[in-house]
Amino acid sequence: MARNPERRTALLDAAIQVLADEGARGLTFRAVDARAGAPTGTSSNYFRDRDQVLSEAADRIFVRLTPAPDVIDAALLPAPSRALVVELMRQLAQRLAAERACYLGLFELRLEAVRRPELRTQLTKVLRTDLDENIRLHLASGMPGDADSVRLLYFALTGLLFDHFTVPGLHGDRDLDDLIETVVTRIVPEL
């Protein structure tokens, strides 16, 4: 297997873009090579099979979506409040919009995981780690609500953002920021 880490990352980023644009069924070594602008056969030098590409793409998505620790620290500087939770959820939506391919690629991976038990195991681990870290941060920072509040925000915002990215007209003229505020206000209690 080839060992150029920058090339490997570029191939994974290309795989994520293929997932977002063409779906999991369109993810082939040839499609990844073409999207990365690499010679045909390059991906097969870095990944033993398609399952490895899917699994490593899941990991790469979370690397791209996870803010740097200093960004998290700065976001949590203001006093804990429901208004801060609203602002943090809006920032999350902005980050996901900036990484739209990652978010759509993640949904493609979720659908593919239904048919691939190994991918399901990997994706469950990655998603659980992310959710657990969000719960830990929420509770440690003194934000209003409990672990179930974070879970409910996760469920609601996952669906809201999925709608926003896939069928943006579904909610009519409702602004995404306003919808986020409504979700948070209904789930997170006042301090």
Rank of each mutant, 00 (worst) to 15 (best):
R3C: 14
T9C: 04
L11K: 01
L12K: 13
L19C: 15
D21P: 05
D21K: 08
G23M: 04
G23Y: 14
F29N: 04
R30D: 12
V32A: 01
A36R: 06
A38S: 09
S43D: 04
F47S: 01
D49W: 12
V53R: 02
S55N: 07
I61A: 13
I61V: 08
L65M: 10
D70F: 14
V71M: 05
A74H: 10
L76T: 09
P78G: 09
A79Y: 04
P80S: 14
R82D: 02
L84T: 02
V85L: 12
V86I: 13
E108V: 15
P117A: 15
T124V: 04
K125S: 12
V126M: 12
R128C: 05
R128Y: 08
R128A: 14
I135M: 04
I135T: 06
I135D: 02
I135F: 05
D146K: 13
A147D: 05
L153A: 01
L157H: 07
L160W: 03
F162K: 02
V167Q: 00
P168N: 02
D173M: 00
D175Q: 13
D175S: 10
D177H: 09
D178E: 06
D178G: 08
R186M: 10
I187C: 14
P189W: 11
E190V: 15
L191F: 03
